[in-house]
Amino acid sequence: MKGRKLLMIPGPIEFEPEVLQAMGQATTSHIAPKFIEVFGNSLELMREVWQSPSGQPFIVAGTGTLAMDMAAANLIEHGDNALVISSGYFGHRFKDILDRYGANTTILEAPIGEVVSLDAIENELRSKPYKVLTLTHVDTSTGILIDPKPIADLAKKYHVLSILDGVCSVAGEELKQDEWGIDVVLTASQKAIGVPPGLALLMASQKAMGVFKNRKTPVGNYYADWNNWLPIMQAYEERRPSYFGTPAVNLIVALETSLKIICTEGMDKRIQRHQNLAKAFRAGIAALKLRILPKTTHLAAHTLSAVYYPKGIDGAALRAKITEKNVILAGGLLAGIKSSYFRIGHMGSVSSNDLMAVLHALECALLALGHPIASGKSLQAFQNELLNTVPLNPVTN
Rank of each mutant, 00 (worst) to 15 (best):
S352L: 11
E324H: 00
E363I: 01
A335V: 07
L362W: 04
V327W: 03
N353E: 11
C364V: 12
L329E: 02
A361Y: 00
R343K: 11
N326F: 01
I328P: 01
M347Y: 01
S352G: 10
L359T: 07
L366Q: 11
L329Y: 01
A361P: 01
L367K: 15
K325H: 04
H346N: 09
E324T: 04
N353H: 10
T323F: 07
A361H: 01
I328Q: 08
L334T: 14
K321Q: 07
L329K: 06
S339P: 14
H346Y: 03
I344R: 07
I328E: 04
L333M: 15
K321S: 08
E324N: 00
F342D: 05
K321A: 11
I322S: 00
V358M: 03
L334C: 06
M347P: 00
E363A: 11
L362G: 05
A330P: 02
H360S: 12
S351M: 08
K338N: 14
I344G: 04
I328V: 13
A335N: 06
H346C: 04
V350E: 02
S339L: 12
E324F: 00
L329W: 02
M356P: 01
V358H: 07
Y341K: 15
I344H: 03
F342Q: 08
V358G: 07
L355Q: 12
S339H: 08
N326R: 13
G331L: 08
S352K: 13
K325Q: 06
I337C: 11
N326E: 10
F342S: 10
I328W: 01
S351F: 03
M356C: 12
A335Y: 01
L366S: 09
N353C: 09
M356N: 09
A365N: 08
L359A: 07
I322D: 00
S349K: 13
D354M: 10
Y341R: 15
V358K: 11
N326H: 10
L359H: 03
L367Y: 05
K338H: 13
Y341Q: 14
I344N: 07
N326T: 15
L359I: 09
K338P: 15
S352M: 11
D354R: 03
I337L: 14
I322L: 03
A361Q: 02
L362N: 08
G332A: 09
F342T: 06
E363N: 13
V358S: 07
V358Q: 11
V327Y: 03
N326K: 13
I344E: 05
Y341C: 13
L333P: 06
I328D: 03
A361V: 03
S340C: 15
A361T: 02
S349R: 13
G336A: 14
G336N: 09
S340G: 14
L333K: 14
K321P: 06
C364W: 00
H346P: 02
